[in-house]
């Protein structure tokens, strides 16, 4: 399993756009988690009288209305946005694999019940599901946000996994495992799911882009990551009244979102192409 997944990733990296995406992701992650040691401390007492300073020496991205360094805030917002997206997708993919695996393996009423539920859930646009789930929290802990983003992201994955498991259920290696006395849990986890690892990886990669955009949107509406925790969407919300006087305060966090999502989507596309060359 790990061998084939590894080969899939290597094949995705043979395409220029896949390589570009992977390089950008690697650099961004590295930068976001290393740069805080190199940059001015965002929580250091700023010079409140100076206000928003345009980009220049000392503050490459300028400062916001409280004279906080925008680059530092983009970096710490990136830590939050990237971690939230990564964890939420991990949760979503795990749920999707389990539900899809169970439905495909057992079939029957369990399959029907689960898939009818997934049909229903897929008919509600994810943003509206999130609005319903998120609006209640007066103060939303980050963990709850991750949970909610993950819990609304697994429906499509479960469909894919179910289809593949259904196809593989009668395969000879599964029959052989059953004959050797493997239980259903072992067969699903050790024999079926590893063979679906490719499509799951593709869904997960593309899912990260979706979640980053959704989290930014929720934070922009003021109900995602909440102040004082910095996030890219929240920075754009804060910067809205400064649009005429200090446009850089909204431009840079937006560029950070767009670059990250673009890189993730490029890599996801390359992975999909590597998995199914016809689709490229």
């Amino acid at each position: 399993m790990t061998g084939s997944l590894w080969r899939l990733m290597l094949r995705a990296l043979t395409s220029p756009s896949g390589r570009l995406g992977a390089v950008i992701i690697a650099l961004l992650t590295l930068f976001v988690f290393v740069a805080p040691w190199l940059l001015p401390d965002p929580s250091a007492m700023p010079d409140l009288m100076a206000g928003a300073v345009p980009p220049g020496a000392g503050h490459p991205f300028g400062t916001d209305q409280l004279n906080r360094d925008v680059l530092s805030r983009v970096v710490s917002g990136g830590q939050i946005s990237l971690s939230v997206a990564g964890l939420a997708v991990l949760l979503a993919v795990t749920l999707g694999a389990l539900v899809g695996g169970l439905a495909g393996f057992y079939g029957g009423w369990l399959d029907s019940a689960l898939m009818r539920m997934v049909d229903g859930a897929l008919a509600i646009p994810r943003l509206f599901l999130l609005l319903l789930l998120v609006a209640v929290w007066e103060q939303m802990p980050l963990g709850a946000l991750v949970l909610v983003l993950g819990a609304t992201g697994w429906f499509a994955t479960s469909r894919i996994v179910r289809g593949e498991v259904l196809r593989l259920r009668e395969a000879e290696f599964v029959l052989a495992a059953t004959a050797l006395g493997a239980g259903p849990g072992r067969i699903i986890l050790r024999h079926l799911l590893p063979n679906v690892a490719g499509p799951i990886l593709v869904a997960a990669t593309l899912g990260v882009g979706d979640v980053i955009l959704l989290e930014a949107g929720l934070s922009y509406l003021g109900i995602g990551v909440r102040p004082p925790t910095p996030s890219w969407g929240g920075m754009i919300l804060d910067a809205r009244p400064l649009l005429t006087t200090a446009p850089w305060t909204s431009i840079f966090p937006g560029l950070a979102i767009a670059t990250t999502v673009l890189a993730v989507n490029l890599l996801g596309d390359a992975l999909r192409g590597a998995l199914d060359p016809r689709s490229a």
């Binding site: 922009y220 754009i236 005429t244 909204s250 979102i257 767009a258 673009l262 989507n265």
Partner: peptide, 22 residues
């Protein structure tokens, strides 16, 4: 098109509003 697709719509809206409107 992929670059546009990666942009948050609210941000692109703000940037366009700033440039063409303001």
């Amino acid at each position: 098109s992929l670059t546009l697709y990666a942009m948050p719509s609210f941000w692109l809206g703000l940037v366009l509003a700033w440039f063409f409107g303001i």
